[in-house]
């Protein structure tokens, strides 16, 4: 995973609540077996018309937001399905940070695993940042994970909080599977204890469907 330290870039305003994962990447584009290539279908139902041409009204089809690296939205961003294709699509497009009042749990989790930083800030602050974002290319935002601040174009610093473990993993681009593997002896011990206390679990789990 790519580390996330500090990002300065163009922010795109998406003044919507409940931006669900079917909007971020519609299910018909989930057939790839790779993690890359989803960017062209990010927000496909808004970005393209029925004939496949670009919809000029959608923010990511406008300059300078074609190069947006930050997205600003309203409440409950990323609700709906568990598809990690949503942060993959954002990342593949070039967006590495989403700022919103709150996020749906699974999307929030998935973002951290992919070096996409979800920043929670109160609605009023998001509205302010949305105004900054509307100023376009002259109004870059900085998101500094090390210091946990968003820096507005006018220099004002807005503090945010990220869970310390997630922050550590993201700052260092660490793979948490490798971390967990270090706990293998504890997992072994837990499994042994569990198999003794709840033998039906070991039995049920050990049953392979015939012919499968």
């Amino acid at each position: 995973m790519q580390a996330f330290t500090t990002l300065t870039g163009i922010a795109a305003p998406l003044p919507k609540a409940n931006v669900d994962t079917d909007q971020i990447i519609p299910a018909r584009f989930l057939k790839s077996i790779s993690r890359s290539g989803f960017g062209k279908n990010l927000f496909a139902n808004f970005r393209y018309r029925e004939d496949g041409s670009e919809n000029p009204d959608f923010v990511l089809n406008q300059e300078p937001y074609r190069k947006a690296e930050i997205l600003i939205a309203f409440e409950n961003f990323g609700c709906g399905s568990s598809r990690e294709h949503a942060p993959w699509a954002l990342l593949d497009f070039g967006i590495r940070c989403v700022i919103a009042p709150d996020f749906a749990d699974i999307f929030h989790n998935n973002s951290f695993k992919n070096g996409v930083l979800p920043v929670k800030l109160p609605r009023e602050v998001c509205e302010q940042l949305m105004e900054d974002a509307r100023m376009g290319g002259n109004a870059r935002l900085t998101v500094d994970l090390e210091r946990e601040v968003v820096v507005r174009p006018n220099g004002e610093e807005i503090p945010f909080k990220i869970d310390p473990l997630r922050r550590h993993l993201l700052l260092n681009g660490l793979d948490d599977i490798g971390q967990t593997m270090q706990h293998a002896p504890a997992i072994d011990a837990f499994e042994a204890k569990r198999a003794a206390a709840q033998p039906w679990l070991a039995g049920a789990a050990g049953t392979t469907p015939a012919g499968a």
């Binding site: 598809r83 989790n109 695993k113 948490d176 599977i177 967990t180 593997m181």
Partner: peptide, 16 residues
Amino acid sequence: FGIGTSEVEHVLATQT
């Protein structure tokens, strides 16, 4: 509960 693909990989590898 539902998980993303990175977590699927985590569970496959570690059962946790």
